[in-house]
């Protein structure tokens, strides 16, 4: 279970009130949602709304920091100094996204430590896409183009999410993600137009990343556990299938411009719908990866745990030093 702070009423009182008070608070909350107003940290909110947001924002934050791993895998091997700088900056941005998403979650009354603990013990999830390996340099481009592209399609509507701190964090995240997406596309373009070996590397990466990217939108709406309530709360604004279709429609012409093929024989323009039809997604693979049977689940979470455990003495040292400084205020060293 997620930890939940005692609710505060609009006047800041800790809500021990029940019955009529609670009903009035709920009515005010409902009115704010239907008027498209933002819910802020000190506003009263239903337990379920708070728990849903904590789960979603935490999962998002975890995805950012686990997502550093497959790309960091190529920092030391990037084939030019320019690409090395771009990749380093990108991975750094992801750490930054993690930071402000954890901060957004903290406005709901949980601590970063608690959330990390839940990630490390497998009680909270991160996006399954990061359980796939980056096998070649072209995977860095495919992640930028497809994975970041899918993330943006998912996240742009979150800039209008009903919870203020999350919506505001997403505005910045989306700006940086769209930069990453263009860089990934440009990386793939250079490979596609490069030597035959580079072109083949790019095609192979797209072949491996296409279907997992489509799965990033989650199961079909009919089977999605959280969709309907999240839509009603305006945390979510569009269904999984609608966003997935939007993504496919964006990618097809981009793949053509790249000179690369998307690995789906059923992909074709549907004049009537004004959209591309595409093939059946293998949801059994999705379920398996979600359950922990993806190629890198164990590796990703182990590395995260190891970094955390190996860093424990550093965090303890910082805390001990801070305590000593606080205990000796006259000993201000004046260093700045």
């Amino acid at each position: 279970m997620t930890t939940v702070l005692p609710e505060r009423g609009p006047g800041g009182d800790v809500g021990g009130g029940v019955g009529a008070d609670e009903a009035a608070l709920q009515a005010a909350f409902d009115a704010a949602i239907s008027a498209d107003e933002r819910i802020e940290p000190r506003d009263w909110m239903p337990d379920g709304y708070r728990a849903t947001l904590i789960r979603q924002i935490a999962q998002h934050a975890h995805s950012e920091i686990i997502g550093m791993q497959p790309e960091a895998n190529w920092i030391t091997r990037a084939p030019s100094l320019r690409r090395k700088a771009i990749l380093m900056a990108k991975v750094q941005d992801e750490a930054g996204h993690g930071l402000y998403l954890y901060s957004a979650a903290e406005t709901l009354g949980v601590s970063r430590d608690e959330l990390l603990d839940k990630l490390h013990s497998g009680r909270q999830k991160y996006s399954s896409i990061f359980n796939y390996p980056t096998l070649t340099w072209a995977d860095v481009g495919a992640i930028g183009w497809l994975v970041d592209g899918a993330a943006i399609t998912n996240q742009v509507p979150l800039c209008r999410c009903s919870y203020g701190p999350y919506a505001r964090a997403m505005v910045r995240v989306c700006k940086e993600e769209s930069f990453h997406q263009r860089q990934g596309y440009e990386l793939l373009l250079a490979l596609s137009r490069g030597t035959p070996a580079q072109h083949a590397m790019a095609q192979d990466a797209v072949d491996r990343w296409w279907w997992p990217s489509l799965m990033m939108f989650g199961p079909p709406d009919a089977e999605s556990a959280h969709s309907a309530q999240s839509m009603a709360w305006k945390i979510k604004r569009h269904g999984n299938d609608e966003l997935r279709q939007r993504f496919v429609d964006i990618c097809v012409p981009q793949a053509e411009a790249l000179g690369l093929t998307l690995p789906d024989p059923d992909l074709r323009w549907n004049e009537e719908r004004g959209s591309y039809d595409f093939g059946e997604i293998d949801w059994s693979e999705f379920q398996q990866v979600l359950k922990g049977n993806g190629p890198c689940n164990e590796q990703r979470i182990s590395q995260r745990r190891r970094a955390h455990e190996e860093g424990a003495w550093v965090r303890e040292a910082a805390a001990a030093y801070a305590r000593k400084r606080a205990a000796a205020p006259s000993n201000e060293d004046g260093r700045r």
Binding site: I65, M68, Q69, A72, I75, T76, L81, R82, K84, A85, M88, A89, V91, Q92, A95, G96, G98, L99, Y102, Q303, A307, E310, G311, A312, V314, R315
Partner: peptide
């Protein structure tokens, strides 16, 4: 310093070490 990415003792240090690495890489270029 680039080897640290994703391995730092806390998230703030992932950001800081990458930042220093990027400055140095810029100087090197």
């Amino acid at each position: 310093l680039g080897e640290w990415a994703g391995h730092a003792p806390e998230l703030e240090e992932d950001v800081a070490l990458a930042n220093i690495a990027l400055d140095l890489l810029g100087q090197a270029r």
